[in-house]
Every structure is written in structure tokens, then in C-alpha cells.
Design a protein around this nucleic acid. Sequence first.
DNA 1: CCCAACTTGGAACGACCATTCCAGGTTAGC
DNA 2: GCTAACCTGGAATGGTCGTTCCAAGTTGGG
Lengths: 194, 194
Amino acid sequence: MPDVKHFDPDAVLEQVERLFWRRGAATTGISDVVAATGLSRSSLYATYGGKQDLYLKALRRYVERRSEPVFRALAEDGRGLPAIAAFFDRLIETRCAGEHARWGCMIANGHAEAATLEVRAVLDRHHDGLRAAMRAALAAARLRPGLDPDAAAEQLTLLAYGVNLRSRAGAEAAALRDGVRAALDSLTQRGETA
Amino acid sequence: MPDVKHFDPDAVLEQVERLFWRRGAATTGISDVVAATGLSRSSLYATYGGKQDLYLKALRRYVERRSEPVFRALAEDGRGLPAIAAFFDRLIETRCAGEHARWGCMIANGHAEAATLEVRAVLDRHHDGLRAAMRAALAAARLRPGLDPDAAAEQLTLLAYGVNLRSRAGAEAAALRDGVRAALDSLTQRGETA
DNA sequence: CCCAACTTGGAACGACCATTCCAGGTTAGC
DNA sequence: GCTAACCTGGAATGGTCGTTCCAAGTTGGG
């Protein structure tokens, strides 16, 4: 190997991911990426390809490193409804406070931009992953009779997208928690005891 | 009045609205607007101001002409839950088929783009309007005991954003209907009879 | 220690961006 | 029918976009 890269490709990709996550693909220029990473255009293009490739790689990294571990934890948590409640609690906290506050979800944001087929494939993979995790968590829950767990999994997944979107516009955490609580309470039939 | 406009400002604004709706603000150029409307740059800038003003006017038109009439119909429909079900049915049909299929909701899409304060004000106005309409419709419904109608209104509003987002990525209408049905069934306690 | 393979910074490129400007045309009031 | 006020098409502007290119630097194998 005559020369070796002077940077860590995945660490750089994480910075790029954060940039696209916060500001979106269309409004983020290569100049911004250069400024944020400190890399030169040559290294950027040689390592990741053009802007579209870069965005796609960042999007895939987001799903693999950020979303899917959470999905796994949700699916493997055997507590049932409390696991789903914890998922939403943590989601709302992440979206409204801390380092990534008001960034929303990179996948939810990606839905709004004109998407190539490759991007849409990542979006679908994310959706399927979350729905499957919800479905698994619901399997461990005591639900009210007559409730279709597949439909409920879809419902909760759509709800998560709504939470992600609204958090970006500055929605209050309390309001988001109210909406989630109403959904979760309704999955059981012991609503009146609350 | 020495000379008069050679076009209908609102009709043109509707075309602009459709353009921003479908493709987003960042990826739509003034050249696209010129091409779609047939107007010249001079008339465009003289009538509406720059691109940001144009987008804002189009966004406001969307809320006033498309969203809020539907909100009013929902709020004034006295049927209760069937009114909400009809709202979602029509929403899903509009988002998945017909002229605007796969365009999503211009407001939901707007959440994902970096937003100025003025844009965010429109987003909030839309959210408050839909939540209030949901709340009014819920007031006419027979809900299961113990359910907080304000929280349920927030829940259904967030759900609508999820439907809008996913429709843009090509989600099947049947899946969206399943998710909505699960939510609506859970608001009553007669789930087991379905 | 030398060269081939690779990397890097940074200049350069054409295309497109939002916006401005102006000359020429149109119209209401007098 | 003249003029002042307004409108319109389209060229022009300066800036920024994504991308390419190249000279200079670095490093492992022989």
C-alpha cells in the first residue's frame, strides 16, 4: 500500500451524516461538508463518490448505527407495552433535548425530499424494521381483545413519524407525550383505571 | 391604473404551490417556476417578491385553501368517530391516488426543510387547526371511559403526519388504512365486535 | 533508496442559482 | 393623442453549485 488515508472514513461519514441529518440533503453543499470535515474535495470524492452517494452512505449509516440498534432493543425487550412506552419516551427526549434536539429523524426528513429509488429503499427498510420491532413488542403485551397487532404495529410506526416531524418544528415534549400516551393507553382496555 | 397585470395572481400562485408541494422548496428553482407559470422573472418578482416570499405565500395558500376547509368540515361534522374515519379515508385516497398522488402534504414536507420563523408559524397554525378539528370531532363521539380527548386529538394529528409522510415514499393505501383503523378502533371499547 | 501507487490541497470548470435591470410595450386619465 | 405610470420579456450579474483536474507530497515493496 503506497500511501494510506489520512483520516478515518467512518468517523468522517458520521460528521457528514450529522450535517445531512440536521440540514437536509438539498440545502447542504459540498462546501459545507468540506468545512465540517476538514477534508479536501479530492479525498471526499475519491472515498465516497459524489454528493448523492455521500448522502446515501450517510443515510444508510444512520439506519444501521442509530435506528436498527434501537429496533433490536425494542424487539428483544420482553416487557410488552412498557417496552414500547420506553421507546417513545426515549425518542421524545432525544428529539426535544440534548445534542440532536430539533433535528428530527433523518429518515422522516428524507421522506419529504424528492427521493431516488435507492433512497426510497432505505426509507422502506427503516419502516419495515420499526414496524417489525413494534410487532414483536406487541406480541409480548396483553392487548385488549379484538385488536389486530399488525395494524397496531403500523399505527405506532406512523405515530413515531409524526413525533419525529413535529419535534423538528419545535413541538413541546409534553404534547408529544400526551399523544403517545393516548395511543398506548388505548391498546389495552384498562384506560379508566389511569 | 396605467396598465394592468396580464395574469391572475392567485391562479399563478396555485401553480407555484403545486410545484413547491411536489418538489419542495430547496430543489425547486425560479427557472422551474418561470417554466411552469409562463410568467417572466420580472412579473414574478414584482408580484410576489423573492423565492422565500413566494414559497411562504404558496404555503399559506395551501393551508388556507386546502387544509383549513377540510378542518372546518371535520370540526362541523356532527357524526363523531365516523367523521374522523371519513377524514382519514379521504386523506389516504388523496395521498395515494389521483392528481396529487405521492406528493404527500406540503405542510408535513415543510417540517423536514430548514425552516424560517415565518414558515414555522404556518406549520404550527396548521397543526393547531387540525388538532382543534380532531378535538371537536371527538367531542361528538362516544369514547371509551377514561380516554383524554385532548391527548387523543394530538395522537390522531400526529398519526395524520405519519400517513402523509409515508404516502410520499410509496406506502400502500391498505397499510395506511390498517394503521388508522387500529387507532380509531382503540378509541372506543367495542373493538372485539369488529 | 527509488519508484510506483496512492493521497492530498487547492485551483479551475461549466452549469445553474436567485436576483436586478432596462428597453419596449400597454393603458388610464386628461 | 399625449403622457405618466405600470407591466413584460429577456439579457445580464455576481455568486455558488457539484465536479474534475493536476502538481506536490507520502509511503510501502523491491
